[in-house]
Design a protein around this nucleic acid. Structure first.
Length: 297
DNA sequence: AATCCGTGGCT
DNA sequence: TAGCCAAGGAT
């Protein structure tokens, strides 16, 4: 596989700023956190502004958390902004301001799980690490295991397979991992894979089996309308888009939104519950006089 | 282990 | 059009 995929990657790789030679480990960490469950196209402009404003972990750590939440914009999952700020603070206070290279140390940072720790160690420092994301899982499931899609949750076997597929040469492992991910992102996609453009097509176990349809239970979709997630997003958007403190009545006016049913005032209770949770999580700061704002802004 | 946590483009 | 899903993490 290596002699097929590595040349393909060299020819087709996207020139993303966090892959540029001059990017810092901090830039790589920021990109990996932003890319969690979020498409590249939406991350690009936010990453550029973020790195321009906060070129180092210490720079971010010196800013109010609310500034990070606002700069996060509409990337989604705004707790990631909070965790990235916390990670920057930990880097400043416990690691002399330098993003650590060791996977196990990275793993201790807020918002950094198994995937992100391996990715930063590999992509920012060139270390040997087993990087397993949804792209890697899908490419392996198809090309090696002959399955249309990977299992719902990451298995030990998948991690073991990813480790076994890494090139022996330590110098090549990071490039290999990003190449597998790039293939999953551009060719071996979840919905409509472009097998005719795939460098692995003639060795792919899934194709050899006749490209069978997915087996197992269909993924249950995430509801959205009327959920706490929609409510939280709506409340936070009001605060993001406001320069100063927001009176409670403006939040009350924002929820429920048109299209969301409000039986017996349940939407009002939901709004208060979500607002309380946002405050408890540190995404919103309550002020005297029934006003609210992004923390420290 | 299952669920929660945003957002918006794509088919 | 309404799901589907995108470089996961925390609990």
């Amino acid at each position: 596989m290596h002699d097929r995929l590595l040349p393909w990657y060299a020819a087709h790789r996207r020139d993303l700023p966090w892959r540029a030679p001059e990017r810092s480990p901090w830039g790589v960490l920021v990109s990996e956190v932003m890319l969690q469950q979020t498409p590249v196209a939406r991350v690009l402009p936010v990453w550029e502004r973020w790195m321009s404003r906060w070129p180092t972990p210490s720079a971010l750590a010196a800013a109010p958390t609310g500034d990070a939440v606002r700069e996060w914009g509409r990337l989604g999952y705004p707790r990631r902004a909070l965790r990235l700020h916390a990670a920057a603070t930990a880097v400043r206070d416990a690691h002399d301001g330098q993003v650590p290279a060791d996977e196990a140390v990275l793993r201790t940072l807020p918002g950094v799980g198994d995937y992100t720790a391996a990715a930063v160690s590999a992509f920012a420092f060139g270390r040997r690490a087993t990087v397993v994301d949804t792209n890697v899982r899908r490419v392996q499931a198809r090309s090696v295991s002959g399955l249309a899609l990977p299992a719902p949750a990451l298995t030990r076997a998948e991690t073991a397979l990813a480790a076994r597929l890494l090139p022996e040469d330590d110098e090549q492992t990071a490039t290999w991992s990003v190449a597998v991910m790039e293939l999953g992102a551009l060719v071996c996609t979840a919905r409509a894979p472009r097998c005719s453009a795939c460098p692995l097509a003639d060795v792919c176990a899934w194709r050899a089996a006749g490209s069978p349809a997915p087996t197992g239970p269909p993924r249950r979709g995430q509801r959205w309308t009327g959920t706490d997630r929609q409510c939280r997003g709506t409340l936070l958007q009001v605060l993001r888009d406001s320069a100063g403190p927001v009176p409670a009545h403006r939040l009350q006016a924002a929820w429920p939104v048109p299209g969301v049913p409000d039986e017996q005032g349940q939407a009002a209770r939901q709004r208060e519950r979500c607002l309380d949770a946002l405050v408890a999580e540190g995404l919103v700061e309550p002020l005297p006089g029934a006003r609210f704002r992004l923390p420290g802004t």
